[in-house]
Amino acid sequence: MTDASRAVYTLRNSALKRNFFKLIWHSRPDTPFGLKHERTYAKRSPNGWLVRHMFVAGKKYTRSAIIYLSDSEGAWNPEPGEVKWERVAIESNPNFALITSRMEVPGGWLVSELLSTISSAPEAATADVSLAYVDDENHAWDIW
């Protein structure tokens, strides 16, 4: 990289908004970065929110998913400690772990699924995160 291109790169990155998303939930707040944990972030956007959910397991296995949540009324104002994920299903065997969770949001639920494959060779293991929105205005979804 030349000095001129480095200057342009630095200028562009310094103009980027740092901490664009706000951390609203953390599975293990006192966990060092390298240990497995989950985080959820939110950012107000026109008529709603962008919500990002991350699974962090060191640099190699960090995964995230993002979803738009409609909220034109401004009914949701997520603050750390006020929102939570509820575990609804955990499946596992020697080859994988599958964790499904839900979070109450205006008009329904956010559903998160974490799939982590297990391998005797660490470099062969994988992880994936997905998010979905379930419309349920009265939050009547009884999973039990």
Rank of each mutant, 00 (worst) to 15 (best):
89 A>C: 11
18 R>L: 07
64 S>F: 12
53 H>M: 13
18 R>F: 01
130 S>F: 07
78 P>A: 06
79 E>L: 13
90 I>K: 03
28 R>P: 05
76 W>V: 01
60 K>T: 13
100 T>G: 04
13 N>V: 05
57 A>D: 08
44 R>N: 10
27 S>K: 09
87 R>I: 12
127 A>M: 07
60 K>V: 08
70 S>M: 03
30 D>Y: 13
49 W>M: 03
24 I>W: 01
74 G>R: 07
47 N>H: 05
24 I>C: 03
13 N>S: 14
3 D>W: 10
126 T>F: 06
136 D>K: 00
112 S>N: 11
14 S>Y: 02
85 W>H: 06
93 N>T: 03
43 K>W: 09
136 D>A: 05
118 I>C: 06
130 S>M: 10
103 M>F: 06
75 A>Y: 02
126 T>W: 04
59 K>E: 15
139 H>S: 02
37 H>C: 09
46 P>N: 00
61 Y>G: 04
121 A>L: 12
9 Y>W: 08
59 K>I: 12
39 R>K: 15
69 L>T: 00
64 S>T: 08
126 T>L: 13
115 L>H: 11
126 T>D: 13
43 K>N: 15
78 P>M: 08
71 D>S: 07
17 K>R: 05
102 R>Q: 10
110 L>M: 07
71 D>Y: 02
137 E>D: 11
78 P>N: 09
40 T>K: 02
15 A>S: 11
16 L>I: 04
44 R>E: 04
84 K>C: 04
46 P>L: 00
52 R>L: 11
68 Y>W: 10
18 R>N: 09
122 P>G: 05
91 E>Q: 04
6 R>F: 10
128 D>V: 04
78 P>K: 03
125 A>R: 06
60 K>Q: 15
8 V>S: 09
